[in-house]
């Protein structure tokens, strides 16, 4: 459905994205996972024809996005990172406006947004500017869907959103995907990667890896262990000074360490015992965040 081929873009001499190759299949829920400044928004803005690439091509349903920009615009639903609806229009007026803009009506495509819009209907006369964050997000999603797009492009829809609302938003996306929509979504929250069919991990304008979330985890090549217990963070300096330890990072109430190989575990445990650590090292399955950190360290090395 979408293909980025050797895409590069610079702003004032600073490369925002470099030689990006990516393809997204029809009906896929594809995640672009990376911190701010990784180039996620730049990629999306080139795809939705708001920005021209310096190099490379993007195909949207078989058409070149630069030559056929009108086709792309009428078949993509785009939700930018900042709230971009009309704050002075009511909920209903915003939706009506976007429907009219694309030559359709709320009635014609109501079924597409029903599940999401229903929760907003009690407030349909309220100005968009006066909505809560969660409701603004639902309205923006409704407006991006009302013209029945082939592809939905969502730029960091969950940034600054609390854990509960994030979960609800992803439940909405899962439903839209089941209805056959192709969805591209970007996020800086690593834990959201597991909710996508496939993800690209991106940092500093380059793709670190593209795979299914399970595939990313499976390719984590190093033995990973967890230290736990109250105040376990105090062992970080010691761990980082040990030659056997490849990396040591705090993870919530534990510390995760990677070793060169499993044989080195005994030596590390001995050193920890001397420093007063009582528990053992438990092997753990890496999460996406472990993988991202590992790939970052590799890329920076």
């Amino acid at each position: 459905m979408i293909e980025f081929r050797h895409i590069s873009k610079s702003f004032a001499g600073t490369a925002a994205v470099q030689d990006i190759n990516l393809s997204v299949g029809e009906g896929e829920l594809f995640g672009l996972i990376g911190p701010d400044g990784a180039g996620k928004s730049t990629l999306f803005r080139m795809l939705v024809t708001l920005l021209l690439p310096d190099e490379g091509e993007i195909a949207f349903n078989g058409r070149n996005v630069v030559d056929d920009y009108t086709y792309v615009r009428s078949h993509v639903g785009y939700m930018p990172g900042t709230f971009a609806l009309y704050q002075d229009l009511s909920v209903e007026e915003n939706l009506h406006f976007f429907a009219t803009l694309f030559g359709t009506s709320i009635q014609d495509n109501y079924h597409l947004i029903e599940g999401i819009y229903k929760q907003l209907e009690p407030f349909k006369k309220r100005r968009a500017g006066a909505l809560s964050g969660g409701m603004k997000q639902k309205l923006a999603l409704s407006c991006a869907l009302i013209h029945k797009p082939l592809v939905l492009v969502l730029d960091e829809p969950t940034t600054g959103v609390d854990a509960v609302s994030r979960k609800e938003f992803w439940e909405m996306l899962q439903k839209l995907r089941e209805d056959g929509l192709t969805i591209l979504v970007s996020t800086a929250y690593m834990d959201e990667a597991t909710l996508c069919d496939r993800v690209a991990l991106i940092q500093k304008g380059r793709i670190l890896r593209v795979d299914t979330p399970q595939g990313i985890v499976a390719r984590f090549g190093k033995p990973l262990y967890r230290l736990s217990g109250a105040g376990v963070q105090r062992f970080l300096p010691l761990l980082r000074a040990l030659p056997q330890v490849h990396s040591a990072q705090p993870f919530g109430d534990s510390v995760h360490i990677t070793l060169g190989d499993e044989e080195q575990m005994d030596e590390v445990v001995q050193q920890l015992r001397k420093a007063g650590y009582k528990d053992g090292l438990q092997p753990v399955t890496p999460g996406i965040e472990d993988c991202f950190i590992d790939l970052m360290l590799e890329a920076n090395a």
Binding site: P35, E156, T159, A188, M190, Q233, L236, Q249, P250, M296
Partner: peptide, 20 residues
């Protein structure tokens, strides 16, 4: 107030080490 929103996982951890 949400000091680490959007920053990469390594910087996020360095940030917390500064707080400590």
């Amino acid at each position: 107030d949400e000091p680490t929103g959007g920053v990469d996982p390594i910087v996020r951890r360095q940030f917390w080490e500064m707080i400590y």
